[in-house]
Amino acid sequence: MKKAEEIFQILKDNFPESNLELKNDQPTEAILIAPPLEIDKISLFLRDSSELLFDSLMNLSGVDDPKALLLSVYYHLESTKLKHKITLKVSTDRNKPEVSTVTEVWKGADWHEREAYDLFGIIFLNHPDLRRILMPYDWDAGYPLRKDYENPEFYQGMKVPY
């Protein structure tokens, strides 16, 4: 059972040139910030390293931050054998959001990433099947969960607002 600081130290030792940070000033949990294009290598290490063994991805969610012009993805990881947890965060530019996919590491991330693409527009590089999952396939009015989303007036002849 390791604490967030120890996990951060192990990661820093193994990925010295990556830009990693630990933020634990906010209530309830510490966040480990990682670069968006290297998250797949970091995740593979987190899953296979014998000290960490993070074999289960609990949650993957997208978050919009229009003030900082960033789109972020939060990963909540857990180890079923060693019983510790960690939260990771990656942030990308809002106009060109690209994050590496982690579906090779945890297959359950597949649909979570499709949902983040559908509702926020985050592109996951090397994803096996990146298309919309909850909204209709021909929805062209944007990404609904962004803070600046506007409702279209009509969709296929049906009035959308009340």
């Binding site: 909850l134 909204m135 609904p144 989303y149 049906m158 009035k159 959308v160 607002p161 009340y162």
Partner: peptide, 14 residues
Amino acid sequence: WEHGYHVLKGIDRV
């Protein structure tokens, strides 16, 4: 009814 961007507001529209 208020914030549902994917909800049809009543089946009698169809």
